[in-house]
Simulated assay, not measured.
Amino acid sequence: MVVIAGGGFAGLEAAIQIKTLRPACAVVLISPGPNLVYKPWLIYVPAGRRRFAETCLPLAPMAARYGFQLIEDRVDRIDLDAHQVRLAKGQTIDYSQLLLATGANADRSRIPGSDEFAFFPCQPDDAEKFALEIQHRKPQRICVAVGWGRRGPGLEFAGWLARRRKPLGRPDMEVVIVDGDGLLADYYGAEAMAAIRPAIRRAGATLSTERGLDAVTDSGAVVNGKHTAFDLVAIVAPLCGVEVGLPADMVDEAGFVHVDHSFATTRPGVFAFGDAAALPSGVATGKTMMSIRQRVAHLASNLLADMDGAPLKPLEASVPPHQSMSNIGGRAILLSDNRVIGKGRLPIFRRWLYDQAYFRLRT
């Protein structure tokens, strides 16, 4: 039996692919909730452009359609020696192969005060809470701190918040982007920043000249050693792995699971995929939705090969150009290795078509 821990995008796509390749294989998908949250659309929730419910895809119909078993529960502990997964409600499940697709959590302990006073809108629950707080509190100034490996989504949250101030009933609301780890310009480079800065201004947000988020307080944020007043503070990243009781040698310093070039971990029969996996350097794949869909067949084939005692196939070591797109308030900046290869609305329209096609495919 294949057990998949995690009902997010990586876990769902893996379950579907395994059942597609081998319909007779028993697959159990363990999800903490009944829905897959379509995280690319979370940027619209605080801005009031989409309701949180519109980002959710029910998992039960897909389980029935593709023939895998769905269990709504949280993984509490994994007994690697006994090949068992122990769930929060007390159930124990045996596995022959285990896929860790538990995703990533906001690291709420990294920045002092953030757990108590900040929102982490990349987390589904916090995205909805942040939206409700904007409606009820009617803030004048919002800080959106970006950085720590996922700068694009932070710029997107801020851009859409600023763009949607009038529909939110807050036309004078100030949205300030803070370079949380102080590496925004170093990460993107001069050419990309020359496109990002005017896109931020056009959306109506402000990029702070102060860099480095030191702490969050009940009245604002400490940036570069100085306290600045904000009504609300949102932090997009940093991330950490989900705690499921794995040995220390299986995870990196942030809690992500070490895998090799075939997505296998250091333990027999155990694989990791998606945000949960700490990929080796030089692997030609990322953690975006498109990359996951491109690589899920490779993962599923290796997991089934492991079940059969056959050799695993490694991913190629060459690294293709890294492409990314930031949707800053309705205007895209398309980058390839941080060189600008496209701007405007057309890339967003193409992404909208992709999203709609995925929803039609899975509903």
Rank of each mutant, 00 (worst) to 15 (best):
A104C: 03
A104P: 02
N105Q: 12
A106F: 05
D107E: 14
P112D: 11
S114N: 08
D115Y: 11
F117G: 11
A118F: 12
F120W: 15
F120C: 08
P121M: 15
P121C: 15
C122H: 11
C122T: 15
C122D: 12
D126Y: 07
K129T: 10
A131N: 06
A131H: 14
L132C: 13
I134L: 11
Q135L: 09
H136C: 02
Q140F: 05
Q140S: 13
I142T: 13
V144P: 00
A145H: 07
G147I: 05
G149S: 06
P153S: 05
G154C: 06
G154Q: 06
L155T: 02
L155W: 09
E156Q: 02
F157W: 08
F157R: 03
A158Y: 02
L161V: 09
A162E: 11
A162L: 05
R163S: 14
K166A: 11
P167K: 06
P167R: 02
L168C: 11
G169W: 13
R170T: 10
P171Q: 06
D172P: 01
M173R: 07
M173S: 06
V176M: 13
V176G: 05
I177T: 09
V178N: 02
G180H: 08
G180K: 14
D181G: 04
L183G: 03
L183K: 08
L184N: 00
D186P: 00
Y188P: 00
A190R: 15
A192F: 07
M193F: 07
M193E: 14
I196L: 07
I196C: 01
P198R: 15
P198Q: 12
I200L: 02
I200M: 01
R201V: 04
R202P: 00
R202C: 00
G204T: 00
G204P: 01
A205Q: 04
S208G: 03
L213R: 00
D214I: 01
D214V: 01
A215N: 03
T217P: 02
S219T: 15
G220M: 05
G220F: 03
G220N: 08
A221H: 00
V223C: 06
G225H: 09
H227F: 03
H227M: 10
T228F: 06
D231L: 13
D231A: 15
D231M: 14
L232D: 09
L232F: 08
A234T: 10
I235G: 04
I235P: 01
I235C: 07
I235Y: 07
V236Y: 08
A237H: 13
L239R: 12
C240K: 15
G241H: 05
G241Q: 08
E243A: 10
E243T: 05
V244P: 00
G245N: 11
L246P: 02
L246A: 07
P247S: 05
P247W: 12
D249R: 06
